[in-house]
Each structure stands twice: as C-alpha cells, then as structure tokens.
Write a protein that binds this DNA or RNA. Structure first.
Length: 286
DNA sequence: GTCCAGGAAGGAT
DNA sequence: ATCCTTCATGGA
C-alpha cells in the first residue's frame, strides 16, 4: 500500500533506522528498509511524504500504524522541548526531526538491551540476528515488489528460557548468555502475568533493575522507553554522558527530567553521534 | 594487531 | 553510598 504522511510530518525512515532504538532494520537501498516486528515482516520505502509499504491496509491498521507510533503528536512534543530555551536541545530537535519512538515488543527489547552492554550497534545487530536464526521461527513474507522473502522472528521467552549457555554463546553474546536465559525465565514467571504496559515508570524501573541480572539503570530506562513507550524514561549512556559534561558542565539539564525526556534524549543521542556534530575541520584531516 | 563499544556485577573502600 | 576492576566478543 501507499501512504501519504504529509499531515504527520515527523517521519524519516533513515533517521529511525539509524537511531539505535531498533536493531532489526536492514537497509535495502536509498530510503528503503526492511524491518521485522513480532511475527511480521515489512518493507518500507520513503519518498518525501509518501511511504511505500509491503503490507496491505488491514495489516497496516492492525499492526504497523501502532508500531510507528502514528498516534503520537510529535509536533507538540517538539514545541514543548523548544520552550526550555535550550540551544543544544533546539539543535538536537531540529537535526533529529523525523525520529519517532517505535512501539516495539517488550521482551525483544529487554533481551536486546541486555545484549547491548559494552557492544557497538553493529555487533548488537549481529548477535540478535544470530539468535533469531538459531531460536526464532522461519517465516515467509512479501517484498515491496511482491516477491517472497524469508526471515526469522525473534524467539519466544519459552524457547530462550530453555536454551543452554553453551548454545547461546555461539551467537556472540559472551558472558551475557546466562543473563538472557535468566531474563527469559523471569519474564515467564512474573511479567507474563502482569499487564506490564499499565505499570507506571516509577514502579517498573526499579523492578527491572533489582530482579534481572544484567539490567542496570541505563538498560532499565531503555526497556521503559523502547519496550513500554514510557516517554519520560531517560537512558544515560556514554553519549548522553558526554553531552552532560561537554554541553552542560556536569549539571543535568531541565529537559532530561521532563515528561518527554526520552524523546529529547533520542534526538540528542542521534545528533551527538552524527557527522554534523562531529564536524571534521576541512583540510586538517589529510 | 589494537582499540573500544547505547554497562553492569561484584568487591573494596 | 561511591569508586575500582573485570567481564566476552566482534566490528572498525
């Protein structure tokens, strides 16, 4: 199907795929990606304000519309951000415009960010892909031009909970293997009985940190932001820490403790890592 | 080869 | 409570 998102404005598939919040986007061409969410496969190509999607209408309205968070008004979130009169935040918002906080699967995010510690984004993607190939379900989907493509779903908690440390280590997760298995068991024992999306941030964040080995304050906030869409959750990683020290003289800025702190952090994270921010002075790098 | 990555655990102070 | 060391692996 073809979707006109002129009214939404805030959507840039390149920025979303490169924003470090989702690890199963695969670049297929210019403004053209595939992504796997739950048991579904989607190809998406953006040409200005038009989206070419490999799914049909029914699948869009039942799954992908929610996944891309099209129900949230990012105009309002950005305007509120601009009201802080903060130069760095304003620059981040402008540069990161088009990023959205995807509504991803809680369990997949939990495991993905347990893997993420002390790993580069390409290495995280590679480990997750190996886990999906080893433990996920093999499925067939459709490409944009109607061809059949194969993919693997992210494994269920049950299957991961029954994996062995030895087998899991073949996916390049190292010492995190036992964390992953324990987290899967935790999910089955506790989280599957809760309506986890109804639990407030202040309650769920400490539970994640205290109950799951391998989850500290940063990963817990990533899980809240990306896995539960708690937009106030503010993950402080090495890049955000650099921003705090370099831009704010080690004083936490006001916007990092606001209802949409997670969205602003995502803009700031994307901006701080960008070539635009890390400009190499012309003529001095030869 | 060598450096470091969207950190956290475990122990010492 | 706050510091210090160690952790397994791959991508650049």
């Amino acid at each position: 199907m073809i979707l006109d998102i002129k009214a939404i404005k805030h959507f840039d598939i390149n920025k979303i795929a490169d924003s470090g919040q989702a690890f199963r986007f695969k670049r297929l061409g210019d403004n053209y990606y595939s992504v796997i969410h739950s048991y579904r496969y989607l190809e998406i190509k953006q040409v200005d304000s038009r989206l070419y999607l490999s799914c049909n209408n029914e699948e869009y309205y039942s799954a992908w519309r929610n996944y891309f968070d099209f129900g949230t008004n990012y105009d309002a979130i950005q305007s509120l951000g601009n009201s802080f009169n903060d130069r760095f935040l304003d620059d981040s918002i402008e540069y990161g415009k088009g990023i959205r906080i995807l509504r991803q699967d809680f369990f997949e995010i939990l495991i993905s960010f347990i893997i993420s510690q002390r790993k580069s984004i390409p290495a995280i993607k590679s480990s997750i892909e190996k886990i999906c190939e080893k433990y996920g379900f093999f499925k067939l989907g459709k490409s944009l031009d109607g061809k059949t493509v194969s993919y693997y779903t992210f494994p269920t908690p049950r299957i991961l909970s029954e994996a062995t440390v030895e087998d899991l280590k073949e996916c390049g997760v190292g010492y995190r293997a036992e964390y992953i298995i324990a987290a899967a068991k935790w999910w089955i024992k506790y989280a599957s009985n809760w309506d986890i999306s109804e639990i407030p941030y202040e309650t769920i964040c400490p539970i994640l940190i205290n109950d799951i080995k391998g989850v500290g304050i940063k990963v817990a906030n990533c899980v809240c932001l990306f896995g539960l869409h708690q937009l106030k959750a503010a993950p402080v990683d090495v890049w955000i820490q650099k921003i705090i020290t370099e831009e704010y003289e080690n004083v936490i800025p006001e916007w990092m403790d606001s209802p949409y702190a997670g969205v602003y952090q995502q803009y700031a994270f994307y901006y701080r890592r960008s070539d635009e921010y890390n400009k190499i002075p012309q003529g001095e790098n030869l």
